[in-house]
Design a protein around this nucleic acid. Structure first.
Lengths: 208, 208
DNA sequence: AATGTATTCTTTGTATACAATGGATTATAC
DNA sequence: GTATAATCCATTGTATACAAAGAATACATT
C-alpha cells in the first residue's frame, strides 16, 4: 500500500489480510473474489473492500478478468515479466544511488553481506543472506529518492519477496557480484553500477 | 485506469473528470481535495470517489499529505523522476520488442515518422510528429507484452503526455535517433535497441 | 489583550440500504 | 426430451445514514 502502513484504516487491514491469504495459498490462483464472503471472513462491511481491491490489483495480486475479480495466477511467464522490469528499475536505482551514496553506507552494506555470506559458509543457512539481499535492494531504491521508481518497485515487491525463494542463486555465485556492485557504487561510477546490477539481476531470469 | 476505459462505472467517470480538472488547471497543485465538494461538482455520491482517488494517486495526480488528499505539485524535480524511470522502462520495451517485432511494423513506424517529419519541415507544424512519437512509444511498450511494464508505463503516461509539450526536442534532432532505433529493431538487436532508446530519452532529461 | 476551555461544525471512514444486472434454475410449450 | 420463457437469486455498483476525529469558533477568565 502506498498509504502509511498499519494506519487504522480497515482498508489497510483488508489489504493485508487478503495479501496474506493469497501468499499462504488459502485463496487460490484463479479463484473468484466474492465481496460478501471476504467481508464476512474479515469482519468488515463491503465498503472498505473496494479501495483495498484497487490496491491489491495495483500490486499484482488480484486481476479483473471477464468473470470478475480473481486471484492472479503466477505463471513462470508472469514472474519473468516481473523480473525483467525489476532489473531495469534496480539498475536505475543503482545509477541514482551512485550519485549520492556515502562511504558509510557502502561499508555497512559490504559488512552486512560479508557476515551473512560467512554465516552461510559455516552453517549452510540462507536466511541471513536472503535478508541482506532484500535489504540491499530496498536500500538502493530508497537512496535514489525517485518517487516513481520507489512506487514501481514497491508495486511488485510483494511478488519478488513471495516468489524469490525458489529461484535465488547460490551466494557463492552472487556474493562476488554484490561486491562488484558495491565497488562501483563506492567509486560513484553511475554507468557500471547500473550495468552490473542489470547483469546481476538478469542472470536470475533464466532460472525462473 | 487499469480498468477497461469508458466502462459505465461512475468511478471511471470521476477518475476522468478529476484528471481533466487537474490537467486543465482548475484544480490547482497543492489544493486540498474535499470529498463533498468533488462529489457535488461531478454529481455523484461520495462512494465512487474512494476508488477513483486510489487510481488517481497511483497515476501520480493526487498525493496524500499530512493535510489530506491534495493535487500533486509537478516540480521539475518530480518530472525528472518520471523521465528517469520512463527511460529505463522504454529501454526495456525496446529490448523486448526487438525479439518479436515484424518487418511490417517497423516499416509502418518508419513511414509514420517520415511523413510526420516531412510535414513538419514543410509547414512547421509539430502536431503530427508529436502524435507519431506517442504512437511509437506506446506501440513498443505494447509489443513486448510484459504486463508489469505496460502498467508502470501507463501509470506515468498521463504525466508524460501532459508535460512533454514544453520539453520535446526538435524533430531535426530526434528524427535520426528514431530512425536508428528502428534500424536496430529491424535487425532484432536487443542490446543496441535498448541502449539507443535509453540514450534517446536521457537526452531530454537535461531540458526539464 | 491573551490564554485556556467548551462547543459547534466540517470532514472522513465505515456500515447499511437499495436498485440493477446477469446467471442459474425452474417451468412451460412443443 | 428439447427448447424457450419466465422467475428467482446472487452479486455488484452506488446512494444514504451514522459515528468519530479534528479544526475552527465562541466564550470565559485573568
Amino acid at each position: 500500500m502506498s498509504r502509511i502502513a498499519n494506519s487504522g484504516y480497515l482498508e489497510t487491514k483488508v489489504y493485508n489480510e487478503i495479501k496474506d491469504l493469497i501468499i499462504q495459498g488459502e485463496l487460490k490462483p484463479g479463484e473468484l473474489i466474492i465481496q460478501d464472503q471476504i467481508a464476512k471472513r474479515i469482519g468488515v462491511s463491503r465498503t472498505p473492500l473496494r479501495r483495498a481491491f484497487a490496491d491489491l490489483e495495483r500490486d499484482y495480486l488480484l486481476v479483473t478478468t471477464t468473470q470478475g475479480l480473481t486471484v492472479r495466477t503466477f505463471s513462470a511467464e508472469f514472474l519473468i515479466s516481473v523480473w525483467e522490469v525489476r532489473s531495469v528499475l534496480e539498475g536505475l536505482a543503482c545509477r541514482l544511488s551512485a550519485r549520492v551514496i556515502d562511504k558509510a553506507t557502502v561499508i555497512y552494506l559490504r559488512t552486512l553481506f560479508t557476515t551473512a555470506y560467512e554465516e552461510w559458509l559455516e552453517t549452510g543457512d540462507l536466511d541471513a543472506y536472503r535478508k541482506a539481499d532484500v535489504m540491499f535492494h530496498t536500500k538502493l531504491v530508497d537512496i535514489g529518492e525517485n518517487p516513481i521508481l520507489i512506487n514501481n518497485f514497491n508495486y511488485s515487491h510483494v511478488l519478488t519477496i513471495a516468489f524469490s525463494k525458489g529461484i535465488l542463486r547460490s551466494p557463492s555465485e552472487t556474493y562476488p557480484e554484490h561486491m562488484q556492485i558495491l565497488d562501483a557504487l563506492e567509486e560513484k561510477d553511475e554507468s557500471s553500477s547500473e550495468q552490473l546490477m542489470l547483469e546481476h539481476l538478469r542472470k536470475t531470469i533464466p532460472k525462473i
